[in-house]
Amino acid sequence: MFIKQLSVFIENKEGRLQDVLDVLKQEKVSIISLSLADTSEYGLLRLITSDPQAGQKALKEQGFSAMLTDVLAVKLAHQVGKLQEILSYVCKAGLNVEYMYALSNKDNEASIICKISNGDQAAELLKSNEVELYSQDDIMTIFA
């Protein structure tokens, strides 16, 4: 139901992002999607990868603060109003979206990654509304 997002703390310093990417490359971990916002002091690099566990282990060994976070990978039809529809379920239930970013545009769908305040409840809610969620296995086979 959930997929593992790799969350890495990086200082806003020249070369830090590249250092993370170097480690992942060494480990042959492929990046499927990522999100990084602009902040002044530090950032959180959020990654969906082919092997989150291996990525986390390698990063920790290299002194990075890295952890795995459960997020939802939601399959959407590439149609006007689809995302709005899904959010309306979430909002009605009184849940909050903490962050969201695009997973992929493939064929006729536009899947997204989202972290919602109460993950379990959100997952149940979306499933009951017949929204499709990708599993970790799906991510590996479809996108990696």
Binding site: S7, F9, A37, L44, S65, M67
Partner: peptide
């Protein structure tokens, strides 16, 4: 940081 963090 002694513990990993995943939210701003």
């Amino acid at each position: 940081l002694a513990q990993a963090v995943d939210a701003y």
